[in-house]
C-alpha cells in the first residue's frame, strides 16, 4: 500500500469496524444473555459474558413452553407458502414473459401499480371473508394471502424475458404440450430465480407477524413471532429466557441466509434495478 492511500484506508477501516460493531452488538448480546444464569442479564454494570454458560433457558423453552411446536408451525407454514407460491407465481410470470395476448401489458402494469396499496388495507375484509370460509384460526387462513404475489410474478417475468424464445419454440415444434414445456423446460431454466424467490418468500413468511397474529387465536397454532410476542407478556422479567426465545426465532433464518446469500442478494439487485 502506498503512503498516499494509507490515511484514507485507516479512516475507512475504522468506520467500517465501527459499523460492524454497531450492526452485530445487539445480535451478539442476545446470544450472550441467553446463556446467562437466571437474573444475571439484569446486573449493573451489564455483563458482556456469562459467569457460567447455561442452556437451561433453551431447555425450559422446549420442555415447559412448547417451543418445538411453534418451531414446527413456523417451518410448516413458511414451507407451504413457499412451495405453493413458487408454483403459482412462476406460471403467471411465464405467461407474462413468453405469451403474446391482448391486454397483457395493461394487465401487468395494473398489477404493478397495485404494489402501492398497503396490505393492511385488505386485512379487515379479508378477515371477514376467511371467517365466512371457516378459515380463521387455521393454517389455511395464514397461507392464503401469500399464495400468489405480484412481486414474485414480476421477478419471474424479469428473469424469463432474458431467455430466448427459440428454446421454447423448438420444444413446441417437437409437439410438446404447453404444460410440459413449462414443467420440464421453463422451471429448470428458472432455477436460480426460483431459489432467490424461495428464500424471499420463506423469510417473509417466517418473519411475518401481523397477519398470523390476526388469524391465529389458538396458541397451539402460533408461529414463532406470535408465540414470542405472547411470551413477552408473561415473562417480561425473564430476560435470559426471552433472549433464548429470540435466538431460536432468529437463528434458523440467519443460517439460511448465510448459506444462500448469493441468491438472495442477486434477487434484490434484480428487483431493484428493473424497478
Amino acid at each position: 500500500m502506498n503512503p498516499r492511500s494509507f490515511l484514507p484506508a485507516v479512516l475507512l477501516y475504522s468506520l467500517l469496524i465501527l459499523g460492524l460493531l454497531l450492526a452485530l452488538t445487539p445480535l451478539w448480546w442476545m446470544i450472550v444473555a441467553s446463556l446467562m444464569p437466571p437474573g444475571e442479564a439484569n446486573s449493573v454494570p451489564p455483563r458482556l459474558w456469562p459467569s457460567t454458560v447455561t442452556f437451561e433457558h433453551y431447555a425450559a423453552l422446549f420442555t415447559r413452553l412448547d417451543l418445538a411446536r411453534y418451531l414446527l408451525n413456523s417451518t410448516l407454514l413458511a414451507s407451504a407458502v413457499t412451495v405453493i407460491s413458487l408454483l403459482i407465481n412462476s406460471m403467471a410470470g411465464y405467461a407474462f414473459a413468453k405469451f403474446r395476448f391482448r391486454g397483457r401489458d395493461r394487465l401487468f402494469q395494473g398489477l404493478l401499480a397495485a404494489l402501492v396499496i398497503p396490505a393492511q388495507v385488505a386485512m379487515l375484509p379479508l378477515f371477514l371473508l376467511l371467517k365466512q370460509l371457516g378459515l380463521i384460526n387455521t393454517y389455511g387462513g395464514v397461507i392464503i394471502p401469500g399464495m400468489a404475489s405480484i412481486f414474485g410474478i414480476f421477478l419471474i417475468r424479469q428473469y424469463l424475458l432474458a431467455i430466448p424464445d427459440s428454446l421454447l419454440d423448438a420444444a413446441r415444434m417437437d409437439g410438446a404440450g404447453e404444460f410440459r414445456i413449462y414443467w420440464s423446460l421453463v422451471l429448470p431454466l428458472c432455477r436460480p430465480i426460483l431459489v432467490t424467490l424461495a428464500i424471499f418468500t420463506f423469510m417473509g413468511a417466517w418473519n411475518d407477524f401481523m397477519w398470523p397474529l390476526i388469524v391465529l387465536t389458538d396458541s397451539s397454532l402460533y408461529t414463532l413471532p406470535v408465540a414470542l410476542a405472547n411470551l413477552l407478556g408473561e415473562h417480561v422479567q425473564d430476560t435470559e429466557l426471552m433472549m433464548a426465545g429470540s435466538v431460536l426465532t432468529v437463528l434458523p433464518i440467519m443460517l439460511l441466509f448465510v448459506v444462500l446469500q448469493k441468491y438472495y442478494i442477486a434477487g434484490i439487485m434484480l428487483g431493484g434495478m428493473k424497478g
Binding site: 459499523g19 442476545m30 414463532l224 426465532t249 432468529v250 440467519m254 441466509f257
Partner: peptide, 20 residues
Amino acid sequence: TAFFLPVVTTLVAVAVVWRY
C-alpha cells in the same frame, strides 16, 4: 454480509432484544 444480517432477522425477536 455482516451489515445485512439485521435485515433477515425477525422483527418481533429483535424488538424483544432492543427492549432489553
